[in-house]
């Protein structure tokens, strides 16, 4: 019997892949935004709005990562953006290798803005660097203002937080100021955008933020 010492963190190889992907994206002039949230937070509706507003100025692509089905990719293609459906085959998150394969498959060279719609889940996607240039988290009003207390890591890892479905605020017990305070305590550098993709309220500021970082 022989013992081999490894002391290898399982995220190490992913971190390397993620850095390599970021260099590649930079070289080809594509800005990749990783969007993370729980299921039903309004990711696809937000993307539909962003595509409609930005498609005149930018060539946009969307990678839909789901465990199964292609319903979201079909919604995106209807708007005229490039879309690819990545099936994670039971995995609860996208890692950098999977992201790179999906990007290559959709021929991303000609795209200047790509959104990765990560698997709907507030835990695992936060732990694996996808190689994206920016991490954006979505929290919808019906989910409640206490989510930062329950899933701190995702709020810590995100560059921006989009609070969606603000048009439903009057029906829910959601304290926007309290929520902001909780988020900023976890991550003082995060930008927060309350929006309604339905009415368009607040979308300007979010779109400005995206274009500033591209």
């Amino acid at each position: 019997m022989r013992i081999i010492e490894l002391n290898e963190s399982i995220t190490d190889s992913n971190d390397k892949d993620a850095e390599a992907l970021r260099s590649l994206l930079k070289a080809q002039g594509t800005f990749l935004i990783n969007i993370m949230s729980s299921p039903g937070s309004g990711k696809t509706t937000l993307l539909e709005r962003l595509i409609t507003d930005l498609k005149e100025k930018h060539k946009i692509g969307v990678m839909e990562a789901d465990i199964a089905s292609d319903v979201d990719a079909l919604r995106i293609e209807k708007l005229g953006a490039a879309a690819i459906q990545a099936h994670t085959d039971g995995m609860c998150h996208m890692d950098a290798g999977m992201t790179q394969r999906a990007l290559m498959a959709m021929d991303s060279k000609d795209l200047d803005l790509v959104f990765l719609e990560n698997v709907g889940n507030l835990i695992c996607p936060a732990e694996f660097d996808t190689g994206a240039n920016a991490n954006v988290m979505i929290l919808s009003v019906p989910e409640g203002d206490d989510k930062p207390l329950k899933y701190p890591l995702m709020f810590e890892k995100s560059d921006a937080l989009v609070i969606t479905k603000t048009d439903t605020m009057s029906y829910f017990d959601f304290d926007l100021e309290k929520c902001k305070e909780r988020v900023l305590r976890l991550n003082p550098h995060i930008s927060i955008f309350p929006v309604s993709a339905l009415t368009g309220e607040g979308m300007d500021a979010l779109e400005e933020w995206i274009e500033k970082h591209m």
Binding site: M1, L6, E8
Partner: peptide, 8 residues
């Protein structure tokens, strides 16, 4: 989460 060692 570290793979510390293996026995073969």
């Amino acid at each position: 989460f570290v793979i510390k060692e293996i026995e073969v």
